[in-house]
Write a protein that binds this DNA or RNA. Sequence first.
DNA 1: GTTTATGCAAATTCTTTGCAATACT
DNA 2: AGTATTGCAAAGAATTTGCATAAAC
Lengths: 140, 140
Amino acid sequence: MAKTDVIDLMQHHGVKPTANRILVAEALSDAPRPLSMAEVGDVLDTVDKSVISRTLALFKENHLVHVIEDGSDSVRYELCHSHEEGEDDDVHVHFYCLSCRRTFCLHDIHIPAVSLPEGYSMDSVNYMVKGICPDCSSSR
Amino acid sequence: MAKTDVIDLMQHHGVKPTANRILVAEALSDAPRPLSMAEVGDVLDTVDKSVISRTLALFKENHLVHVIEDGSDSVRYELCHSHEEGEDDDVHVHFYCLSCRRTFCLHDIHIPAVSLPEGYSMDSVNYMVKGICPDCSSSR
DNA sequence: GTTTATGCAAATTCTTTGCAATACT
DNA sequence: AGTATTGCAAAGAATTTGCATAAAC
């Protein structure tokens, strides 16, 4: 995603695009997979981890990122590509490889909806499949 | 679940039922909701947290528990009631309340299946909905 | 008697926070 | 000037590991 698009995305979500925030957003955007906080830090060694922490928290509040818990003892973040302000969209299934410990986005697979019992209201959904990825099953 | 059932469950999964392990399994079984490691420790103050850690890891390996990541910075465990050895069954949707931070099992709601792309093999699935639970939405 | 489990303390990992300095409007 | 952001260091939370003792088969 181009820098101007990232800035645009932030503005649509009410986040002031500072230099560091642009870097973080671009790192997420350029990554082939959802990144953990530590991984963002690895890519951006100029940016302090406290800034990354606060930036990702801010992005989360403003629905600029999807948060993915894959059980790998660190939460992962994925840039939300919708320009809507409110709810998340483009919610797809994620796959965590138990062998290489990478998390993949299965962009083409939408999360099937469920209807919740009376009284529950939905904010976000995570659909997480664990298993072995193609790379790991072929290299055995 | 009765003590004998817990022992039975362990033996079906190839886990030797020691005193501590029975306590942990019973704690999970008696809880109205999936418990974190710390919560198991709160219930069982006689059992060391290292034992609980190792026990839950063992249960996990042997598919005796479902592992639930609700993003609350601690993983939760739920006793798996099937007596099958291999795959998990009785996979249902979970609900995490953003307000009271409790995790509920929506036992009646099965996780809708998805078909994975070529090459991916499935081991387990998590379907996690976040939002506001009935208790919290009524008390506002 | 050898293997497996336990219990304590210390270590590890990942993340957040306090606070002073800096940059923005 | 006043508010928001940054960067460093230190604190915090959750879990795991090393190792010696104790229990089980």
